[in-house]
Write a protein that binds this DNA or RNA. Structure first.
Lengths: 204, 204
DNA sequence: TCTCCTTGAACGAACGATCGTTCATCGTAT
DNA sequence: ATACGATGAACGATCGTTCGTTCAAGGAGA
């Protein structure tokens, strides 16, 4: 028989809150100094807990990064949901580009994703996590593009899947450029939109 | 007054060769384990020299990475040269896309550039080096695009500089995808070309 | 109500390994 | 004898992780 009901529920909630606090601290550290330049002690200090206690909540430094990556990738869900909403494809596409670009205009998101990606090169579990979530986004966008083709709103010259990947890589490329080159993403958005419309045959 | 001529010349050559050997060893280490996971001892061991001797050739670990980045970025020079050669813009563009994509199809080049870029986020000298060399490439490509517009070979809907950046980011985005997703770059090239032609108004 | 006992979150000293860097020393050619 | 490239021991710092300990809170029995 499991232990009493009400108390554990409260406990779990407090525990989850503590985990979140640690993760937020870790994110701050990783942003400021990078994953490998951040020590476990730094995370614990920033979270205001002891070194040992951190290991009561996470199995290690790598685990912390994995959890962060999971949270980060979960933020893609709203975009996917909006992409899948019925309606005129072109309008939905425009909205997606604008909102995704806005999301990526926060340097934290870009830097964090660079940090995660570069770690994923040599850590298979991170790579799998990354690819899985990205595939969901690509699929949703590809479906939207297909709808746009069927309705005659746009003209693709290669298959939707590949086009979707290219569109995403374009937006992300601009975001990287925005961070590295210290250019505000807002200034890059108009040119990006025009380029995309041409690539997707919107002017046909 | 500088020291005697003939002997030092030979010496300098041998010295440069040794430097190169160390850099090559460092590249191998960085590729295999990443910059921060590579110790100075690993580099020295791989180069077959002693730990202390490494510091006779480089002022430190960071210096080694800077030199590697310099060498890596110098490999862009041939591309810039070919972009600047006179001739039909469209043909030159096609050739550039194919050759640059082929260059980036070597995973070493991609991984190394990720390693350098992610370090550049927090090291200003690396960032400056990176931006400077990339600007030269962007400028050359932008000029080529301008020529293409003037000759009526292609139709840009935003300014050449921005278009050039977008084109480069597209190619590089595909290359990243090729590495992370374990897809051979050759398979991505046709779709990329088609997408680019549409974006640059080649079919007009 | 008071006491005893269990529980587990929190702690931080300690571990062995490794980090980047320095430098006294040695062998070798001039 | 002199100059100098090469060496690796040594340094202090820091790494990620472990683990014995403390102690406040909650439940059971009086």
């Amino acid at each position: 028989m499991p232990p009493a009901d009400p108390a554990p529920a409260k406990r779990d909630k407090a525990l989850a809150a503590r985990r979140r606090k640690i993760l937020e601290a870790a994110v701050m550290c990783f942003l400021e100094n990078g994953y490998h330049q951040t020590g476990v002690r730094d995370i614990a200090a920033k979270a205001g807990i002891s070194l040992g206690n951190l290991y009561n909540h996470f199995s290690g430094k790598h685990d912390v990064l994995v959890e962060i990556a999971t949270l980060e990738l979960e933020e893609l869900a709203p975009f996917i949901r909006r992409l899948r909403r019925p309606g005129p494809a072109l309008k939905a596409l425009d909205r997606f580009v604008a909102s995704y670009a806005k999301y990526l205009s926060a340097p934290e998101n870009i830097i964090l994703s660079i940090e995660i990606t570069s770690e994923a090169i040599r850590k298979d579990d991170l790579a799998a996590l990354f690819m899985e979530n990205r595939k969901a986004l690509v699929d949703a966008l590809a479906d939207l593009l297909s709808r746009g083709v069927q309705s005659g709103e746009l003209v693709l010259r290669s298959d939707p899947q590949e086009s979707a990947e290219l569109v995403l890589e374009l937006i992300e490329g601009r975001a990287y450029h925005s961070v590295l080159g210290q250019v505000p993403m807002l200034r890059l958005l108009p040119g990006l939109k025009v380029f995309l419309r041409a690539a997707l045959g919107v002017f046909r």
